[in-house]
């Protein structure tokens, strides 16, 4: 026996979790909402990896997608708008043994949270980040988001959006230290699951943009891609994802893409039609911030108190004659 006794005992009585162990409550998303598909894929991923629910955390911001932690029977943090990533980074920094997922909407991540998004990619902490991109603010009833296509009429753009949509993939791939970027669509559940699984296994920040339908506010916007499988391009590679026969039967537009090829990844990221689906870029050698900054010093109450006192002392006005 080579493992330590405690490790042996843990493995000997390792609990196996079913899908139901990760489910909680009834979703309040609209029927047909892509969030349901993402939730299912994530629950399957947790079951496959047998993640301990009490050591798994889902952090979200604000929006329809950010309700996801409510439906996971794990720890969760329904945060504030745009701040899911800093919260998740804080959790990971102080409790590196926890598995941390982040769920954000396109407004949450690409608008108010854009600064955090860019720096989170640069920090490359070990997080699995899902961008639920339905290209609209849904919870607040249809306002244009940064990823809304040009010309989209919404409550804030009644004459149509004036700007070209922001491309989360090209932005992510332009950030220093980027280590994992992928794109999936909610209507191919098998690929959605495979990509999320690969993202989970990647050490570092894995950024997955999920194009999802909003049946309430943009019911037909993605129909051309949903209904015509040839307008979806599957990226496959032996170091990326592999395509099953059943998926290959429907989705015949494919490209073999090596995820280590950054130049090609950036070209693919700019493609809109057919929409690329798969892992665009992966680099396992980028260091994680929490590893670079890991301090072996225990945060004992005395240590914390000493640090605080030292800081306070810098601003203390000492009575005359009193030593400090």
């Amino acid at each position: 026996m080579s493992a330590a006794p405690t490790e042996c005992l843990l493995r000997l009585y390792d609990e196996h979790h079913e899908l139901e162990d990760y489910q909680k409550g009834v979703t309040r998303w609209c029927p047909g909402c892509g969030d349901n598909a993402i939730l299912t894929a994530v629950q399957r991923l947790c079951r496959t990896e047998n993640l301990d629910p009490v050591k798994t955390v889902f952090v979200s911001g604000i929006g329809c997608s950010s309700r996801l932690p409510h439906y996971m029977n794990t720890y969760g943090f329904h945060g504030i708008h745009g701040r899911a990533l800093p919260i998740a980074e804080g959790v990971k920094m102080s409790r590196p043994e926890l598995t941390v997922f982040v769920n954000m909407g396109d407004g949450d991540c690409c608008s108010i949270g854009a600064a955090h998004w860019v720096h989170a990619i640069r920090y490359n902490m070990d997080l699995t980040v899902m961008l639920h991109d339905n290209q609209i603010y849904g919870l607040t009833k249809k306002q244009a988001s940064p990823t809304s296509p040009i010309g989209l009429k919404s409550n804030t753009t009644p004459k149509g959006a004036y700007l070209e949509a922001l491309n989360p993939l090209t932005v992510s791939l332009g950030v220093t230290n980027v280590s994992f970027v992928a794109q999936v669509v909610d209507w191919i559940p098998e690929v959605l699951y495979d990509v999320l699984h690969a993202a989970f296994l990647h050490k570092g920040l894995s950024f997955v943009r999920i194009l999802q339908r909003c049946p309430e506010w943009l019911p037909n916007m993605l129909d051309p891609w949903v209904q015509d499988p040839t307008r979806v391009k599957l990226l496959y590679h032996e170091d990326g994802i592999k395509v099953s026969p059943s998926v290959a039967k429907v989705y015949t537009t494919t490209e073999e893409h090596d995820p280590s090829n950054m130049n090609r990844a950036r070209e693919i990221a700019s493609e809109v039609d057919p929409v690329p689906v798969g892992i665009l870029y992966r680099n396992d050698d980028v260091p994680c911030y929490e590893d670079l900054r890991r301090d072996p010093t225990l945060r004992t109450p005395q240590f914390v108190k000493g640090g605080l006192e030292a800081e306070f002392d810098k601003f203390t006005i000492w009575p005359e004659g009193e030593e400090h």
């Binding site: 047909g32 892509g34 349901n36 939730l39 299912t40 191919i188 098998e190 059943s246």
Partner: peptide
């Protein structure tokens, strides 16, 4: 079934 997106419809 493998293509179902769990949309609850």
């Amino acid at each position: 079934t493998e293509r179902c997106t769990t949309c609850n419809e």
